[in-house]
């Protein structure tokens, strides 16, 4: 019973991810494409839930769905082309080759990765129980402290860069 529900949930999330990804690439309307992206992010959050990592799943929803995609939305609203209709990207008629190349470039890494995983995958582990939040924190500040600090340095640099860009533009006006 439990296995069946899990498989059904897996299928649902997979469908959500694929459908969302397709919508993100195919929709002419930028906002609809963004909705596709959000669907994909939701699907990934669901996958985290299935892997007994609810903390990651909720963080995915909180950060990516609640904040990042909302910021992308804001960017779309601010960058409407003068004269053109907002949120529409012109799609040139020369479609065939572009479609083919994009499918190829998308499938290539997927095929390679899938091949490696199929060939050398370790047997599936029994589902672990949820890792308590405190242990997660200990891991981040213990064995992985260097990676943790490096990520925060990257974020600080990005933030400083954003402030710098903002100031320069203000001077120009």
């Amino acid at each position: 019973m439990e296995e069946m529900v899990a498989s059904a949930a897996y299928g649902l999330y997979l469908a959500l991810i694929v459908a969302g990804g397709l919508a993100a690439v195919r929709c002419h309307n930028l906002v609809r494409a963004l909705i596709g992206l959000i669907m994909t992010l939701f699907g990934v959050a669901g996958m985290y839930f299935l892997m007994a990592a609810p903390f990651l799943a909720l963080m995915q929803i909180l950060i990516y769905v609640g904040a990042v995609s909302v910021l992308i939305f804001f960017a779309i609203m601010l960058t409407r082309a003068p004269g053109g209709e907002a949120g529409h990207e012109s799609l040139r008629p020369r479609m065939g080759l572009r479609e083919l190349l994009s499918v190829a470039s998308g499938l290539l890494p997927a095929v390679i990765l899938a091949g490696i995983v199929a060939g050398y995958a370790p047997p599936a582990l029994p589902l672990k129980s949820e890792v308590p939040l405190a242990r997660l924190g200990q891991f981040l500040t213990g064995p992985y402290v260097l990676a943790f600090e490096l990520i925060s340095v990257v974020l600080v640099v990005a933030m400083a860069g954003a402030v710098l860009l903002g100031f320069e533009r203000r001077k120009g006006q």
Binding site: F55, L58, M59, I61, L62, V65, G66
Partner: peptide
């Protein structure tokens, strides 16, 4: 839920 507070914060962001 162990992460109840986070659950509320995450979903209210929608």
């Amino acid at each position: 839920v162990n992460l109840g507070l986070l659950l509320i914060l995450a979903f209210s962001g929608l």
